[in-house]
Structure formats: C-alpha cells, structure tokens
C-alpha cells in the first residue's frame, strides 16, 4: 500500500478563529515529510488532530486506507509521536515510564529502548521530574522509537535538543527510520535542519497547505533571480511564477517557483544589464512562501 496516512478536507477552529481549513495531504512509507509553517500557523493543532488528541471540526483522516474516528485508538499503535513539550508523569522513573509506555504498543522493543536510553545518556533510575527539557525530549524519542512505528510524527522537537544529539537524531536516526520503511512527518519552523533529510515538503500558511511537493522538485525549481539595471529600474516586472520580490537599489531580486523555460525567456527579454540565477536553500524557499504572511 502506497498511502500510509491520508488527510482530506481537515478543518479546525477555536471559537470563531479558524486555524486550519480544508487541509489535505498524503504520507507514504519510507519518506520524510517536512511540515513547515510559522509559529501559530496550526502545525501543533494539525498534529494533535492526527494523533486524536483533540477533535476535528471536519475532514477525514485515513490510516492505511481506513478512516479513523476521533477517540479511536488502535491506529496509534503504529504511530510514534514526539510532541513539542513531551511531559510525562513526573513521579515515574525513566525505566518505569518506558515499561508503562511499552504496554500500549504491541511491537514494543524493550532492548531497543534500553539501548537508546544508553545512547542518549539518560539515567534509567532518574525520576522523570528531575530530567531537563532536553532529557525529556530524548526520553520521548526513545519511547517513540522503541514502539517501532510505521509513522513517526515529530512536532518541532529538536529545538530542545543539544547540538550533538540533534545532529545525531536528524542525520542518523531519521535516516535509519526512513530506510527501514518508516514514514516521518516532521513539523517544524526551524527548516534548515530538514534540508538534508526531507523528501517532501508541506508548507502551511493562513490555515491552508500552500505547497505540497517533493523536496527535489522544489529544490530544482525554486530559483532566485537578481536583475540589475543600469538606469532607473522599472516599477514592476511582468514575470510569471514569482513568489517573492524585493528591490535593492537598482536591482530587483525575484524568487521564482516553479522555474520554467518561459520564465527564463521572460527574464532574458528584459535585456537587463545583469541577470544572475541561483538555486535557493530550503530556508529561503520557506521564507519566500510565507513572506506575506509574516
């Protein structure tokens, strides 16, 4: 089955404030999905709806082709979840919490949990309430991975991790998981971390998904064009597929997506004194897409 998770027309409002509208996307196995959005765009709300933590107002969530209702629990056995603030029961020890957690997951691997506890340098006997936020995040990652999930949902967790752990997590662990067939949905606003691992991008803006494309395609088709003029530059430029623009002195800087021969021809037809076209980083692409919203 190619579709692991499918979301259609998902909507959520808090009171009169609409947070998410008609969200739809698909997640396939063995891929890393980046769910990008600025703060307050609804990433956590979307993830919580996917995890059945909060009810949705409308829409369908299907896991492995089967629609799941709010309150349903079985599908979560195949999902690992690392929340933004992974608070556990403070009175439990690290070992106790993992043992407690393991009883919920049929594929729970206690040896893997034990190994990951050592790998992340956690004290197995420490009470959870004595752990720092970073250590609790590590514990959440351990708890999520030992369940051997088919889908791992990460809700902006890496900001609390120290640099070595974050690098290891992003480079090794996520990579291992994807190679092992696990799909990863990584919700974050710190996009530079995703660049090396992401396969597919979703960008949330204004309560909607405005970009749903493979990262390679985005990477290859998103370009920055710097157009320099010798005299007074034109007030506006009639170029297609421009998602971001700014004027710097006598230069225009355009962000174009998707890049095409027609766009290239339009740029050449300007007969500018200088035309520089260069690829964009993921951060630049994201910034360009969400610029207006900020």
């Amino acid at each position: 089955m190619s579709e692991l998770l499918k979301v259609e027309r998902l909507s959520k409002a808090f009171g009169r404030r609409s947070v998410l509208r008609d969200i739809g996307f698909t997640v396939e196995p063995a891929k890393v999905y980046g769910l990008l959005g600025c703060n307050g765009e609804g990433k956590t709300t979307l993830v919580r709806m996917l995890m059945g933590i909060i009810p949705r107002d409308a829409g369908v969530i299907a896991f492995k082709g089967r629609p799941v209702t709010y309150g349903e629990a079985e599908y979560k056995r195949a999902i690992g979840y690392v929340p933004e603030d992974p608070f556990f029961y403070g009175g439990m020890s690290v070992t106790g919490l993992l043992a407690f957690n393991g009883r919920f997951f049929p594929k729970w691997d206690p040896k893997k949990a034990e190994a990951d506890v050592r790998r992340f340098g956690l004290d197995p006997s420490a009470k959870v309430r004595t752990l720092s936020r970073g250590q609790q995040l590590k514990l959440a990652v351990v708890a999520a991975l030992a369940a051997e999930p088919e889908l791992l949902i990460l809700d902006d967790p890496t900001s609390g991790l120290d640099v070595p752990t974050r690098r290891e997590f992003l480079r090794d662990i996520i990579g291992e998981l994807a190679r092992g067939g696990t799909a990863v949905l990584f919700a974050t606003h710190l996009v530079h971390e995703l660049e090396r691992i992401v396969d597919h991008l979703f960008i949330l803006r204004g309560g909607r998904i405005i970009l749903d494309e493979p990262y390679d395609k985005v990477k290859s088709q998103a370009k920055r064009a710097v157009i320099g003029f010798t005299g007074q530059p034109p007030e506006s430029l009639d170029i297609g597929n421009v998602i971001g623009r700014r004027r710097i002195g006598q230069d225009w800087e355009l962000v174009i997506y998707p890049w095409s021969e027609a766009v290239n021809g339009s740029l050449l037809a300007l007969n500018a004194a200088r035309l520089e076209v260069e690829p964009l980083s993921l951060e630049d692409i994201f910034a360009s897409f969400v610029q207006d919203a900020r």
């Binding site: 933590i53 309150g71 979560k76 992974p86 403070g90 957690n101 919920f104 997951f105 959870v128």
Partner: peptide
C-alpha cells in the same frame, strides 16, 4: 501537574 495530557491522550488507548 506533570502536563501529561498530551502524552496520555496520544497513547493508543481509547479515551473511554
């Protein structure tokens, strides 16, 4: 007290 709502509700167990 522990802020464990998210943790508890995201476990594969029905709210009931």
């Amino acid at each position: 007290r522990d802020g464990a709502w998210t943790y508890l509700l995201s476990r594969p167990v029905r709210k009931e």
